[in-house]
Amino acid sequence: MALFPISSKFEGDFVLKLVPVDTENTMAEVAAAAAEHSVGVHVPDQPGRPIRARAEGSTEAYPLDMKLSETGLGPTDTVEFYFE
């Protein structure tokens, strides 16, 4: 377990945000942490639609149960979050 900062690029937001997460978090948990700082703050909520994460520029989402430590992401790398 280790604190791990990522840069969140949330679909519809205007700014990249620093989001502290943990290497043991699943990508579903990472997405929830990113959503806390964007959804209902700068991005309208879309109830019922799950939030997915992918590497910036990628078209493929990380599996929701994948651990952050398994993604190959480095500290402060930018992750795209979007409503599925």
């Binding site: 840069s7 690029k9 519809g12 937001d13 205007f14 700014v15 910036e56």
Partner: peptide, 12 residues
């Protein structure tokens, strides 16, 4: 801050 137009140009 690293900003962009929402949905258009926000990019790292």
């Amino acid at each position: 801050p690293i900003v962009g137009t929402p949905g258009v140009s926000l990019k790292d």
